[in-house]
């Protein structure tokens, strides 16, 4: 999910995510492995350009498909920043852009799909909260809304020191997707995140809470790396 965090002006970061999922439907058992690449660049202190892309391989029912799922181009404009203490902050950004369609067998949509959303992030001591609401307009298909939330708890260090080089976090996410056609999915993700000064690594397990009309997820493992050059 997106957060209201931005690279500084003139700086960039790279994020690579790998997913391995199993679905009960469509087909008796469908496996999907995918990789996402995200590049973000700070145009100004409050404006970032984000380029996303995703590739996937899907196997099930004796067939295998693979290819380019989508590419996304987003502008993030921060409109709220309240820095309340050395660590503490509350930020919010608007996200606007579009998803471009990928290869026919694995793509999410057949046409360019506009996206608009808002993300907010609050850090209060060892606690972090993110919220995101996102709309994707899809030509010839149902529009999609996503409502996501996450909570992070800093496990260690309890208190930062001058020589602290990184931090461990426990992460819980609640990811929801609903379409104008009434399809629904609600998933929970639990994971672990380590942040160093210029890189971060994360691992998570996604499990379904409720689903109706969308491919039925059994579970998904997510691993990710971020790097600030």
């Amino acid at each position: 999910m997106d957060a209201a965090t931005h690279p500084a002006q003139g700086q960039s970061y790279v994020r690579v995510l790998g997913y391995a999922a199993e679905y009960d439907d469509p087909g008796p058992e469908t496996r999907r492995q995918s990789m996402g690449l995200k590049l973000a660049h700070g145009l100004r202190s409050s404006t970032a350009l984000v380029v996303e892309s995703e590739w996937a391989r899907r196997e099930g029912g004796g067939e295998t498909d693979s290819g380019f799922v989508r590419a996304g181009l987003l502008l993030k404009q921060r409109f709220l920043r309240r820095d309340l203490g050395p660590l503490d902050t509350w930020r919010a950004s608007v996200l606007a852009g579009a998803d471009l369609p990928g290869d026919e067998m694995v793509r999410e949509a057949a046409h360019v799909s506009p996206r608009l959303g808002v993300a907010t992030t609050a850090i209060l001591g060892r606690h972090g909260l993110n919220g995101q609401i996102d709309w994707t307009g899809r030509t010839g298909e149902d529009d999609r809304f996503r409502l996501n939330g996450s909570y992070l708890y800093r496990l260690a260090p309890a208190t930062y020191a001058v020589d602290s080089r990184g931090a461990w976090y426990a992460v819980a996410e609640w990811l929801n997707e609903v379409t104008t056609g009434g399809d629904l999915r609600s998933d929970a993700v639990t994971g672990l995140l380590y942040e160093a000064r210029n890189w971060a690594a994360e691992v998570g397990l996604r499990l379904p809470l409720a689903q109706d009309g969308l491919p039925e997820l059994r579970q998904e493992v997510v691993v990710g790396l971020r790097w600030l050059p």
Binding site: D83, G85, D88, G128, R165, A167, E195, A196, R197
Partner: peptide, 8 residues
């Protein structure tokens, strides 16, 4: 400086 949020 305020608002540093995290190591990254």
């Amino acid at each position: 400086v305020y608002g540093l949020s995290c190591p990254l």
